[in-house]
């Protein structure tokens, strides 16, 4: 600490410990190594996945599952993954904004905190239970709805053919319900942080509640809503069990969502096939896992980037 140039007497014994104090060194060492363990672990995740995926990357295309090579194996799954996640996002985004608004600005305060707790509880329900509920209750319940969509909106490229309870549409809806709590929680937090002064200024000018929300709450919460949506999208992309249970996969590309003709998702494909796989098949599945890892990584980093940009702009945080 101090670098003095003057000559000084040796410090008196009363104030010195002779450089000991093991407790401090041990504690510091423990904390630092805990941090390093985490960094190492993440490095290992990437390294081991690459190592296990490598044989599939260099393998003869004929040896890879499906016999047409890695790209042909992963591509439909990637399409299926993105499709299911997008349906989920489209379902959950407006609903999460509505629910968050209801909790933050419409419900009586005492009810609001209870409702917030309820939403948090919903977030804790294990995904396998959502899957079982989806296949047992929502799937059959959606058959007439999907039928109605084919009858009345059949001219759209999304509906047609024979409806299945195990369709992409049902899967996406269940995923949407699953990511609803996390997105609602993010939106609720952001809406509650709207500066009161902005809200009161708007109301004082004679705005109705909805006009106040348009003028004060949404502009303030825009980036929060986007980052919440990205977090939800990341979850939906990586969700495994619900998709594995509900979706009946095929290996075709089609825009029709209500039949069982859509490709599966990467995560569900791994869960369904990994337990029975060996040899090059394991490497292929790990390679597809790696693709999923980078996909979610990009989405999540985009979300963080938006959050950090927001905190730079608003002095409040």
């Amino acid at each position: 600490m101090s670098t003095s140039t003057q000559t000084r007497e040796p410090a008196a014994a009363e104030l010195t410990t002779g450089g000991r104090r093991f407790g401090d060194q041990i504690f510091r060492g423990l904390s630092t190594s805990a941090g390093l363990v985490i960094l190492t672990a993440l490095f290992l995740v990437a390294a081991f996945l690459l190592w296990q995926a490598w044989p599939a990357l260099v393998a003869d295309p004929a040896d890879v599952r499906g016999g047409k090579g890695l790209v042909h194996y992963i591509a439909p799954l990637l399409v299926g993954t993105v499709m299911a996640a997008l349906i989920a996002l489209l379902t959950a985004l407006p609903l999460s904004i509505g629910i968050a608004l209801f909790i933050s600005h419409y419900a009586p305060r005492r009810l609001a905190s209870a409702l917030g707790y309820l939403v948090d509880l919903l977030a804790a329900v294990p995904s396998v239970i959502f899957g079982l509920w989806g296949i047992t209750v929502l799937g059959p319940g959606m058959i007439p709805v999907q039928g109605g969509l084919v009858d009345y909106l059949g001219w759209l490229p999304f509906f047609g053919g024979t409806s299945s309870p195990r369709s992409m549409l049902v899967t996406g809806l269940v995923l949407g319900i699953m990511i609803l709590p996390i997105m609602t929680a993010v939106n609720r937090e952001v809406f509650l942080q709207t500066p009161r002064l902005h809200e009161e200024a708007s109301l004082a000018l004679g705005a109705t509640r909805w006009e106040m929300i348009k003028q004060a709450v949404f502009p303030f919460g825009k980036s929060g809503i986007i980052s919440g949506a990205m977090l939800g999208l990341g979850r939906a992309l990586g969700e495994t069990m619900a998709v594995a249970i509900i979706l009946s996969p095929s290996v075709r590309y089609t825009s029709v969502l209500n039949t069982s003709g859509n490709p599966g998702t990467i995560a569900a494909d791994i869960a369904l096939n990994f337990p029975e796989s060996s040899g090059i098949d394991v490497n292929t599945l790990v390679a597809s896992g790696l693709v999923l890892f980078f996909l979610t990584l990009v989405v999540n980093m985009f979300a963080r980037w938006i959050v950090s940009r927001r905190s730079e702009f608003s002095g409040a945080n």
Partner: peptide
């Protein structure tokens, strides 16, 4: 180190659970 840690802990939050499983298998 602490900045890297903060960043990568954020990254870890987003790892799909199936990928975590694959990592453990590979390890």
């Amino acid at each position: 180190i602490s900045r890297a840690l903060t960043f990568f802990v954020d990254v870890m939050t987003g790892i799909p659970s199936i990928v975590a499983g694959l990592f453990a298998v590979a390890l």
